[in-house]
Design a protein around this nucleic acid. Structure first.
Lengths: 340, 340
DNA sequence: CTGAAAGCGCTTACAG
DNA sequence: CTGAAAGCGCTTACAG
């Protein structure tokens, strides 16, 4: 293994000079810097990460706590993971991926052993057992997902309240007066998936304000159950003209359901979903949808975390950044059909 | 930060004794061990990972090199990632996830800086530019995916040759004599996705041996293109009675295509796919399929890597372990329909 | 069975 | 502008 001692010897300088020449933390004569850089090149020197971490108390690694739950759409998680790792690398950080069931103990273990400089928590629940540990940890953290009590922690999430309102408002403006909202399964909510009711409640409220009738249903998370439920809902509410889907499985099942009933969107029914563009492309889902903004949330969370680590963030106050929802228009909304 | 020095002081012993009491690397009187363990408890001591790595040259971290490519089904990658991280954790290792485009340089960077004890490479190409670096690296590696030249590296993959033969044999045994095989896009192959042709060639060969006519097509990787292609294939080969799908997007599109033609499997046509059970469940794909064995491959790769790291693997020879394909029977194969 | 000391490969005050 | 030395928190021969 080639060390900075080898570099120093070959360059004919001391180890401290070699170190300073590489870090640029004090001025070095051009000549010496040349020699050091040359030696680094020739020897193929790369600093030992463990030694550096020990000396500086900085690992240049972020801990990424994923949380995979039944009844949630796992591939969506991949978008967040990639958003985080890619942005982190751009900023000079690598990512330790933690996927074990018990996220709280993983967080404690990694924090105590000083393996990372900070944490990103994905899929944060309303009352997340990882938050207590994070607040006591020596390293800062950013959440992707808004918990019930975000005190003292930086949070990034889609603005699900505005998303719920936006869905209703968009169809109301087109003239719709009776809508169906299909959420994710109630299990998700019970487990702390607060975004489900945040969107649903906001939609309900906004519908009430606008005089729109809204039928809310917690759907299943997989086929073929959700297909059957969609059929049931359309049967139960034959005069509904719009369908709001906060449930990936429902979106994937809908094309079949509509086709089998001889319906098409938006001629017969308007549809707005809530899923990633990537999901839409893979399955060519033809419905306008509020994007999950996974990539953007990952980037924001990483950028803010790094500013905390490096001390450039305001130490006095934390941030709750709710990203404004944006509808990817795929042409599945229109004025409601006129009844005869 | 609490160090082993604190533990030693509180326990009233030397640092070396405290260290040995914790590692168990030499015999310690029961009394002293008690005191040390008590001190660890009281102080909440966890060893500093960087310091430990520096002293032992072991990081207890594995590097996981993912490789995301256009035209391949990204969610499948998540299965491998989870298989690896979960098994690694069980064995006492954490996982550094590397997702950057340039896998070769990532591998070199992480290897040179001694951040990990070994590497897992996912989605290995026929002629993978990461392999040269891996062979020169100080750390061992396991591949998931068989390259053209696996010399000197441990490899784990699904046995795609047997998979191709198995698909053909299964339908031949039922009486089918004309089949269609839809592979992943040709781009995948050009990029080094050798598994695509390995399966296709084996299927072709076996079909020839058995006197089965096999029409091979490189399909698109997303909707709606692949749907149109399936329609075209069924039109072009009206007497084909079996469909083999080595293409996730084709499997996802098929239910619609069959329904719109008034066909059902296996009454009108037999179908065998090649995708994960998880994918099948999420989209309720009703087709029998050869499982990707992502979980098993991840586990095997990790277990073997760790045995190399810890020196228990045979240092003289490397392993190429091709996992036997297994068909998850979902009832989509039967004797071909009798023509009138 | 236990302790004092050296060493892993870095960085960074301290001196000049 | 440069060097000798201490220190980060561990482990592990070396001595007793």
């Amino acid at each position: 293994m080639v060390t900075i001692g080898d570099v120093a010897r070959v360059a004919g300088v001391s180890r401290s000079t070699a170190s300073y020449a590489l870090s640029g933390k004090r001025s070095i004569s051009a000549e010496v810097r040349q020699k050091v850089e040359q030696a680094v090149q020739n020897l193929g020197y790369t600093p030992n990460a463990g030694a550096k971490a020990l000396a500086t108390s900085q690992t240049k690694v972020l801990g990424l706590l994923a949380r995979f739950l039944e009844d949630e759409f796992a591939p969506a998680m991949l978008q967040y993971i990639l958003g985080v790792t890619n942005r982190a690398r751009e900023a000079g950080y690598d990512t330790l991926l933690l996927t074990e069931e018990d996220g709280a103990s993983a967080l404690k273990r990694i924090s105590d052993s000083r393996m990372v400089d900070g944490f990103i928590l994905l899929n944060v629940a309303e009352n997340d057992d990882r938050l207590g540990i994070l607040r006591d940890a020596a390293q800062p953290g950013s959440l992707v997902g808004l918990p019930g009590d975000p005190t003292g922690i930086d949070v990034f999430d889609l603005d699900f309240v505005t998303a719920g309102r936006l869905m209703v408002e968009t169809l109301h403006a087109l003239g719709h007066r009776e809508l169906i909202l299909v959420s994710q399964p109630e299990h998700v909510l019970e487990r702390g998936g607060a975004y489900v009711w945040r969107l649903a409640n906001a939609a309900q409220e906004r519908a009430a304000e606008l005089g729109v009738e809204l039928h809310h249903h917690f759907g299943s998370s997989s086929q073929p159950e959700i297909g059957g439920e969609l059929v049931g809902l359309l049967d139960a509410h034959p005069s509904a003209t719009g369908l709001l889907l906060n449930n990936e499985a429902a979106a994937a099942a809908l094309p079949n359901v509509l086709q089998s009933r001889g319906l098409s969107a938006p001629a017969d029914i308007s549809v707005i979903g809530r899923y990633s563009d990537d999901f839409a492309r893979t399955f060519s889902l033809p419905y306008s949808a509020i994007d999950s903004a996974a990539d953007e949330l990952g980037r924001l969370a990483v950028e803010h975390l790094i500013s905390r680590i490096e001390g450039t963030a305001d130490a006095e106050s934390t941030v709750v950044d709710l990203v404004a929802p944006r509808i990817d228009d795929r042409g599945s909304t229109a004025v409601p059909p006129t009844r005869h």
